[in-house]
């Protein structure tokens, strides 16, 4: 059995997975607040009987790219973008605290404030709820102030403060729902230095050119692996021929 064939096959399979990660980034090139995923290959020698001559490549996350996306002005009161580093705290579907950069918020009929995907936005105390209002203003530090329904504009009252956090990047991990969470499952403390701007949305931080280059590179590497598989095949064929001629 030619073991080289299997090393090449593993390589091809892992490259296809890396291509999937890359395509996921490309698919999310217009997703508000999206953070691109990276992929890297780790060499993994195979130990067993004899020397570890075979080394498989294994695709693995190289983490999430935390650089900022481009800010787009929308003029909508409840669109917010985090300036620089930091995250908005939301409640994930599992009920636990999670973090996002997607700030296209909305106010529901019951007064709860959620993201576009329906996840409640959190304050220090819990989900953010605002009374019926004619005007909602979100301040730089996350303070939500409203003009209550049926009041004059000078009756501006402060309701609550959106929880903004800035845990160290190495402690953050992207979950299966695309939200960021602390690796230890805990809650990050509120960071008063994080500021947000309303009327602005942060675009995806996927670098389109970079992703396209990655795509081409992965394609060619894949072809290289297939070529190796082809060569292994030819070697076997030649050996078989020589042996059958010898008999």
């Amino acid at each position: 059995m030619d073991r080289g064939l299997y090393v090449a096959m593993t390589g091809a399979k892992q490259i296809m997975q890396a291509q999937a990660v890359n395509n996921h980034n490309i698919a999310n090139v217009n997703t508000v607040g999206f953070r691109a995923d990276g992929v890297s290959f780790v060499s993994q020698p195979i130990y067993g009987v004899g020397l570890p001559t075979r080394v498989n490549a294994v695709a693995s996350d190289s983490g999430t790219d935390f650089s900022s996306g481009v800010l787009q002005s929308t003029g909508r009161q409840t669109d917010v973008a985090v300036n620089g580093k930091g995250y908005i705290a939301v409640q994930g579907l599992d009920g636990k605290e999670a973090y996002t950069r997607a700030g296209d918020l909305r106010i529901n009929a019951d007064g709860s404030v959620t993201t576009a995907s329906g996840l409640p936005v959190l304050t220090e105390q819990g989900p953010l709820n605002i009374p019926p209002a004619t005007q909602v203003t979100i301040g730089n530090d996350g303070t939500v102030s409203i003009v209550p329904l049926g009041s004059a504009p000078d009756a501006n009252t402060q309701t609550d403060v959106i929880k903004l956090v800035n845990p160290p990047q190495q402690n953050l991990q992207k979950g299966e729902d695309g939200l960021l969470r602390l690796k230890d499952g805990g809650k990050a403390p509120t960071d008063p230095s994080v500021t947000i701007t309303s009327g602005v949305l942060e675009s995806s931080n996927v670098n389109a050119a970079q992703s396209l280059i990655n795509m081409i590179e992965l394609q060619r590497q894949y072809e290289l692996q297939v070529k190796s598989m082809n060569s292994a095949d030819q070697n076997e064929q030649t050996a078989e021929q020589m042996l059958s001629n010898a008999t």
């Binding site: 997975q17 395509n23 996921h24 999310n28 995923d37 693995s60 995907s117 992207k174």
Partner: peptide, 16 residues
């Protein structure tokens, strides 16, 4: 030290 999570793409959740 690292895992592998594969994203499955994008969807439109709402129009506002």
């Amino acid at each position: 030290s690292t895992g592998l999570t594969l994203g499955t793409g994008v969807s439109i959740v709402a129009t506002e």
